[in-house]
Amino acid sequence: MKNNPVIKQTSFLLIPVILLFGLYVQFHGDYSPGGGFQAGVIFASGLILYALIEGQAKAEQVFSMRLARILSASGLLLYAGIGVASMFLGANFLDYNVLADDPLQGQHWGIFWVELGVGLTVTSVMLSIFYAFTNFK
């Protein structure tokens, strides 16, 4: 199946679009349906499609298992870090109002970074689980 030219060409046509759509869902989640969870899953499925077509060795050159583990932890850390940052700035945990001079701007930044943390964690967790299954013999 891997050498089927139709599947291969169609996938190569689709993968960039899937990845771009994942980024759109990630960064446009404030204005349209979507957010970190959905974006992470979409981005991961683009990479998984690449792994299925080109084999896992090539996929790990793009997004290695090690990178996935580091990013999954740092996404969660980024989320919690935003909460701690707002505590240091004198507000409650995860109260974004104090992150900028204007409370609304602070909310905007807080949501942006928090959603980015969610997206990073979800992408790399989905990939790690997929890698773990395909590596398992």
């Binding site: 404030d30 204005y31 349906p33 957010g35 909310q107 807080g110 949501i111 928090v114």
Partner: peptide, 12 residues
């Protein structure tokens, strides 16, 4: 202050 209410509830 963001248009998508669901994101406002979920993330804030």
């Amino acid at each position: 202050g963001i248009p998508n209410m669901v994101t406002a509830v979920l993330a804030s």
